[in-house]
Every structure is written in structure tokens, then in C-alpha cells.
Design a protein around this nucleic acid. Structure first.
Length: 291
DNA sequence: AGGGACGTAGAG
DNA sequence: CTCTACGTCCCT
């Protein structure tokens, strides 16, 4: 796979090259429409990702390797995402350096309701939801869609999955905001509860993977202490960010100590020792390549 | 087998 | 320290 961007466009049956669309936008020289055209072009690109993953069975357990060519969003080069979200927000740092006019918000400051430093306009989507770092002002299209989906028909928990957003494309523009040179490979694990943090953490984990003694500890050390398995991070329940609030686990959280039934990892549902988690690198942590 | 309760590992 | 949630036991 030399260039996943091309692959994605081909898979989608369209040559949606953002750079070309940008040139078209410039030729039109309708400055007022440029942002809209860019937005639409990038939306098309998002959809191409969605189609790719849909047609390829969501996120495979096996690692995908792709080369980093250019930031996914051209606008990301200047620190603006199509959602009008500062990528820095997703990466858990303040964005003042990029755009001092923006309302900056630290991830840790907005994680828990009721704690100081949480602006009143902060979206409190759910506990541990990385979307909490995004205020409506910054992320209106995304926030509106999320809120709409939350409002309507939550009886069917699947509606909360937000497959086009959760842990997938919302994370990709975050990578678009950093200037990685061509050829650099970034591998991430996406724990849905802290996807933004996991993106950064795991990107560095891969660098130390070979040296990490934990990678072989469970299999070769003969440690009698049974380690808690970690969620795979890629199955549909793992990608869900929001507790349903109505299942027995949610209702019984105080005493049950169990994750929402709709967020329970498919791998963890299986009996220990029967699934991929034994063979996966990184201690069973599912991983994903970004480009 | 399924679900609730509890101990506690692991992360922050 | 708090909090989340995995593993396990026990009950139905």
C-alpha cells in the first residue's frame, strides 16, 4: 500500500483529490465560497474513508500500514479543521499558540463535570468522552450531529455509536494538524474512552515497543498474577463513547462496577485466552496505523 | 446461562 | 487519592 489516500479514492470510485479541488476553488476565485468548497471536499474525503472502512469490514484487527504523505486536511496546515475544531483540542493541549483568538480548553480541565475550569458552554457529552473537550463554538457541526443523535431514539443504543465519528474520523484530522514528514508511520491505539490521549500515547508506545519488557511479560515471565485484559479498542462496542445509561450495568454502576453493556468489548466477552488478545502485540492492545 | 455484587488492577 | 471497569464468585 503505497498511498492509502489514493487507495481510498479508488475504492470510493472517485478521484476526490483535495489538492485538485483546492486548485479549482482558487481558479474560481470566489473567496466567499472557498471555505465552503474546501469543507465539501473534505467532507467527501471523510465519506471516502467511511466507505473504505465500511467496505473493508470496519477496522481490521491486523495493523494497517500507510505512509504519511501530506496532512489529510489541507486546512490543517494552518491549524484549521473542517469542523472548525482546533486539532490541538483533540491532542489535549491548549491551542493558543495556533490561534490565540480561540477559546482554549485543556482536556483535563473539562473531563469531569463540576470541577473548576469548565466553561459553562462545554459539551458534557458523557463521562470520559473526548468530545467533551470540544465546545459547540469550536465544533458546531460535529456537536450538533452528536446532540441530535443523542436526542433522537436513544432507545436503540446503536444510535449512539456515531460510527462516522467515534474514534475514527474525529481522530484523523487530529493527525492532520501535525506536520509529520512524508514516510513517517504513526501507529495508534484507540481506546474509545480516551481516544485523544491514546492517539498520542500509543504513537509513542510504538517507538518503545521493542524495548518494553511488558510485551513479553505475560507469556514468558510465568507471572502468576493474572493481568486484567484490555479492551481491543476496535470493535463496535469499544468504539462507542457514550454509556447508554439504561442498561443494567449503567443503572447498577455503583455496585456492579461494570461497563455499559453496549460498550463491553467483544473480545473481553469471550473467555480469556481464546481470542486475538493473546497474540496481539502491545499486550493485547489493538492498534491502528495512521497516515 | 445470565445477572448482580464485590474485590481490586490499572490509570490518572 | 479517586475512578473505571475486569475478573470472579454466587445466586437465580
Amino acid at each position: 500500500m503505497s498511498n492509502i489516500n489514493n487507495t481510498l479514492c479508488i475504492a470510493n470510485g472517485q478521484g476526490a483529490d483535495v489538492s485538485l479541488l483546492q486548485k479549482d476553488s482558487l481558479q474560481l476565485d470566489v473567496s466567499g465560497l472557498n471555505s465552503v468548497l474546501d469543507y465539501n471536499a473534505e467532507m467527501e474525503r471523510y465519506r471516502s474513508f467511511a466507505n473504505f472502512y465500511k467496505t473493508n469490514g470496519a477496522f481490521p484487527q491486523t495493523a494497517k500500514i500507510a505512509r504519511i504523505t501530506t496532512p489529510i486536511f489541507p486546512s490543517a496546515r494552518i491549524g484549521v479543521s473542517p469542523w472548525n475544531c482546533d486539532n490541538a483540542m483533540l491532542w489535549g493541549r491548549k491551542s493558543a499558540a495556533i490561534n490565540p483568538n480561540r477559546t482554549s480548553m485543556h482536556r483535563n480541565e473539562s473531563q469531569r463535570p463540576g470541577k473548576p475550569g469548565v466553561p459553562p458552554e462545554t459539551l458534557q457529552m458523557a463521562n470520559n468522552n473526548f468530545l467533551t473537550t470540544l465546545s459547540p463554538e469550536h465544533c458546531r457541526p460535529l456537536a450538533a450531529e452528536c446532540m441530535d443523535k443523542l436526542k433522537c431514539g436513544s432507545a436503540e443504543a446503536e444510535i449512539m455509536n456515531l460510527p462516522e465519528r467515534v474514534g475514527t474520523f474525529s481522530a484523523i484530522p487530529a493527525l492532520g494538524g501535525i506536520s509529520l514528514p512524508p514516510g513517517v508511520i504513526v501507529m495508534t491505539a484507540l481506546h474509545s474512552p480516551a481516544a485523544s490521549a491514546a492517539v498520542t500515547d500509543s504513537a509513542f508506545q510504538i517507538a518503545n515497543l521493542a524495548d518494553c519488557p511488558q510485551n513479553n511479560s505475560s507469556a514468558s515471565s510465568g507471572n502468576p498474577a493474572k493481568k486484567k485484559r484490555k479492551r481491543c479498542g476496535v470493535c463496535a462496542p469499544c468504539r462507542r463513547l457514550i454509556n447508554c445509561g439504561v442498561c443494567s450495568s449503567c443503572r447498577n454502576r455503583k455496585t456492579g462496577h461494570q461497563i455499559c453493556k453496549f460498550r463491553k468489548c467483544e473480545e473481553l466477552k469471550k473467555k480469556a485466552g481464546t481470542s486475538l488478545e493473546r497474540t496481539a502485540a502491545n499486550g493485547g492492545e489493538a492498534f491502528r496505523w495512521f497516515f
